[in-house]
Amino acid sequence: MASYRSKNSHGRYFITDGLINKSTDNPIPLLGNPDPLNTISIDILRSFVPLNILSDDHLKTISRSHEMDLAVLGQSIANAEILRDSHLFLVSGSVDVELDDGQPLRICGGTENSHLSLGDSFPTAVGVTAVEDCQIFLLNRSQLDAMLCWDQVAKTLALDFSANRHFDEDASWMNTLLRSNLFHKIPPYNVKSIFDRFEARVVKAGEVIVHEGEQGDICYLIKEGCAHVSCVHNNESTMVAELLPGRCFGEDALLNKTTRNATVTMKTNGVLMGLHKRDFLALMTEPEVATLNIEEAVKTVANGARWLDVRSQQEYENDHRADAFHLPMHLMSLKSRLMDVNTRYVAYCSTGRRASTVAYLLNQQGFNVQPLAGH
């Protein structure tokens, strides 16, 4: 029987006794080496919703950390719990999706009904069974929503940069920073605050910025100019790389207590943007956002509030609440102008993470938005 390999931080998924299960404590050991034929390509990932709106960086992360698995004829692939906690995508082959009324629906890979995860296409599904050999892969819902949050907030900020002449001088390095894997660790609530924490430093050619072996507490991004990186080997200093505008260095100082592993010296005059470790750690703290459970949310809407759907266009078109105002996260700056500051809104998505982020950001602008808790 095949095993499902997933190396994400939310625990591994594996197939045993014909059913995909989840374990965070004692996962069944994976047999054999990863099969390159099971690698999920970027093109395959981009064919699914909402993965199609993820940045290339996050798609590459998923491609590196997840693999497709083969489910064989008659195999029970998932139950209601798995479908609730995970996105189950059908790459090829056919499955029967069992609904809560006991009726099965036949779904074939590559068709319109398979572009969304099976749990999203059929919210009342309680099980999935392979009716022929098929390829599938799973993504933890919370993990995916965290990526979606970051990407959508970053796109919103990029639109702000391009529309605001005030950012003309800084737009390039700001957009570069938003694509940095290091800053994907910061909660999306705090993304906009990153730029307020950076301090500019004017530097001259020949100036040593960091020394190999010293303790570091600042990360730098090159806004203007270029630098070279050197390491000492056999008592001789050797240049190993050149850093151009847009490159970060010294990131390890923000995450670890390790010493600098190289020396960075300015090759030309320039300007660096520096972020201190204390500021980075402050940005890692998520603000508390009060949520509503489903009963409270329904009652709030019945009393005059309006649903606010913050998912992607295709997710919204597949299924949405009656009279919901659609506000995709990446269009928040543009479409929020159509919202009424005197109206109360209840934001929702698939896990509550995107809804909480949008609620937090909109409330800072004077709106009255409460998110629906993950469900």
Rank of each mutant, 00 (worst) to 15 (best):
M332T: 07
H87Q: 10
F325Y: 12
L88T: 05
G352Q: 02
V203L: 09
S47P: 01
F161Q: 04
H233R: 15
V203C: 15
D309S: 08
T238I: 15
F89C: 10
I136M: 06
D309E: 08
V301G: 05
S23I: 02
P187M: 07
L45D: 02
T351Y: 00
R311L: 10
I107W: 04
I218E: 11
P188T: 10
E98W: 03
V310I: 11
Q365T: 06
A158W: 10
A324D: 09
F280C: 04
H375E: 12
R247V: 00
N190Y: 06
N269D: 15
R306T: 01
E67I: 04
N113R: 15
A78S: 12
S162P: 01
R354G: 07
L182R: 01
A163G: 07
G102V: 04
H10W: 13
D160Q: 14
L73A: 12
Y189C: 06
L327K: 05
N303Q: 13
H115D: 03
P371Q: 13
M266E: 01
D168K: 14
D56Q: 13
S55D: 08
R201H: 11
D196G: 10
L157Y: 10
A227W: 05
Q314E: 14
Q215S: 12
E296T: 04
T285K: 14
T351P: 03
Q135F: 08
F167H: 06
M339K: 12
I53Y: 07
S180E: 15
G18H: 04
S121F: 09
W173G: 05
K299C: 07
A125M: 04
S121I: 01
P371E: 11
T176D: 13
F161C: 08
S41R: 10
F167G: 01
V210R: 02
V346N: 00
I28H: 06
Q313A: 14
V210Y: 02
E295L: 02
S41I: 05
D160T: 14
E317C: 11
S350M: 04
K155W: 03
A324F: 09
Q103C: 05
N234H: 12
R106F: 06
A200T: 13
